[in-house]
Design a protein around this nucleic acid. Structure first.
Lengths: 224, 224
DNA sequence: TCAGTCAGTGAACAAGTGTTATCTGAGTTC
DNA sequence: GAACTCAGATAACACTTGTTCACTGACTGA
């Protein structure tokens, strides 16, 4: 490798772009503070000053990172739903392994609930803003969810159970699964965190709903 | 009948309780104005002064009718979901008549979409606040939706197709139908009002989803 | 080493907010 | 017709809000 400065090359204490790193750091702080505050209120009622106060930074500093609170919201949508793509790959990957249908459904529900638990704030944010009062955020969520549905659709297409299904039909099915997932995650948020009984009811309900849907899928081609 | 005053009894120009009627009138105006403003924003960002200004009344007058904006929201939930009960009765009544399954599904979807169109503001409000930032409103919606699910469940129980289903299972199925209805109505809101193609896609998607669910229902008892 | 960049500061701005106390006058009741 | 009630008006309160501006000073690159 070529060296850019005369310093000792091995440990590389990364003196490069300290400025940029610091900026990124307060940007993160703004996003985190925003997400934290959004646990109890919705984006349209969140104040710019509220966020900067939480971070401990001057109000004007906000504009160095986002033009708007809406822009911050859109950024949050990105990280909330971006990390979800790996999850869906996990869930769909289970289909390739030789597990039976019931087991697969339980696994998918378990993955969904676990994810919802690990990302409470993100999920709550998505559920709240999906039909919320801020247009650009709503659109960002819709777009991300659409990409997501497409991904599930192509995943389903690879399964033997999808023989004879048109791409359009598979997309509808995928959308049904995705909406069901979002609904389940939102339900988990709504239940008190320390009430295992309520949680079990949610999980059991989610399983049965998914079984019904999968049963319908299995018999879709019965009448030609 | 007995007369309470000596005036001519027949036409009864209703001089009684003028005060109360006037109060009710501005209460209605507040609710209407609130709903109108909530088409473009969510409850948590709505201002008390904003509402009274829209009505043309002093800010302080608001407190004669509601302690809170949250209380106004709860009242709106009541009227938004109250009128829906008659709709579900309509849809379920179709089951009693001798229509075949496919026709029944189309009818139900049509009813749902028509209702959503006629009550745009109400539906938008419910979708927005279901997981919105105002706790009491969220709870009111959840409670109303639960009552609603119960009603659907007892309606389904009366159908021959429900033989062998436990009440708990019927409740899950009813919940699935209800959530699907809400989802469909919300999707109708999201589509541009003057784009028939987008609307058709939504209707067609809703139908197929419902067919899948109903198919799953029909085969639920296949494996005992 | 030195000039330039730019993330964050501090102060001021014009508006907006929810809430309160006091007053007014039409509607009610006897 | 006089006494009372109470929906709504008026005005003031103490804040909070988003946005702007000129500024400071650590980091950057030559």
């Amino acid at each position: 490798m070529s060296h850019t400065s005369g310093a000792a090359g091995a440990p590389a204490p990364a003196p490069l772009r300290v400025r940029q790193a610091q900026k990124e750091q307060t940007r993160r702080a703004l996003l985190d503070a925003g997400l934290r505050l959004l646990d109890r209120q919705s984006l349209s009622s969140l104040g710019l000053r509220e966020v900067t106060r939480e971070v401990g930074v001057a109000p004007a500093a906000f504009y160095r990172h986002f033009p708007d609170l809406a822009a911050l919201g859109v950024a949050l949508v990105g990280e909330a739903l971006g990390s979800l793509h790996t999850v869906v790959r996990d869930a769909l990957a289970g289909g390739a392994a030789g597990a039976d249908a019931a087991e697969l459904i339980d696994r998918t529900v378990a993955i969904t609930v676990a994810y919802a638990d690990e990302h409470r704030a993100h999920i709550r944010f998505i559920a709240r803003e999906r039909y919320g009062g801020v247009r650009p955020v709503r659109e960002a969520i819709a777009a991300e969810l659409a990409r997501f549905t497409e991904e599930v659709a192509t995943g389903l297409a690879a399964q033997p159970a999808s023989a004879g299904w048109s791409p359009a039909e598979l997309r509808v099915l995928a959308g049904l699964y995705v909406d069901h997932m979002v609904q389940t995650a939102a339900a988990v948020m709504e239940a008190p965190q320390d009430d295992p009984a309520a949680r079990d009811t949610i999980v059991e309900t989610a399983r049965m709903r998914m079984r019904i849907i999968s049963l319908g899928r299995a018999h879709w081609l019965d009448g030609r």
